[in-house]
């Protein structure tokens, strides 16, 4: 996965890269894994990391991160926010990739998180016989 962001003047490149990595993980988690499940009485069923899928390193691809710098004109350092930029583009990028893979089956959109079961169910609803 490749991410290019404009965070203004980069003072510490390592911190910027780490922030973007974290943001990408957050966005991918939202797109593919994370969901809160409640029962009819309002009891949270996904109450621990045994049940709630926070993305771990082996759930994620390698990241290539780059910055495209335009200095911010509203502060003397020329810096911009960086904390969540990775989480903005990654969910639509991942979901668009899933929809693209399913497009020929007539599937035009899919809800997050697009877990294997969600994708399987979407395929079941199409009349085309999908290969395993």
């Amino acid at each position: 996965m490749t991410a290019v962001d404009d965070v203004g003047r980069v003072i510490n490149p390592m911190i910027v890269e780490g922030q973007v990595h974290g943001g990408l993980a957050q966005g991918i988690g939202q797109a593919l894994y994370e969901t809160c499940v409640y029962d009819d009485y309002g009891q949270l069923l996904s109450g621990s990391y045994m049940d709630y899928t926070m993305p771990r390193a082996d759930h994620l691809p390698d990241f290539q991160v780059a910055t495209e710098t335009t200095f911010c004109t509203h502060n003397s350092l020329g810096v911009k926010g960086c904390g969540e930029v990775g989480a903005i583009g990654s969910p639509p990028a991942v979901i668009n990739a899933v929809v693209d893979a399913l497009y020929d089956l007539g599937i035009k959109d899919i809800s997050m998180p697009a877990t294997p079961e969600v994708v399987w169910r979407a395929i079941q609803t199409t009349n085309l016989k999908a290969a395993e």
Binding site: D51, W120, R121, E132
Partner: peptide, 18 residues
């Protein structure tokens, strides 16, 4: 359960067996 419905488990069971 919250992780998978029975019909999906049935599907996965066949795929894993293959």
């Amino acid at each position: 359960d919250i992780h998978a419905a029975a019909d999906y488990r049935a599907h996965i069971m066949a795929v894993m067996t293959r």
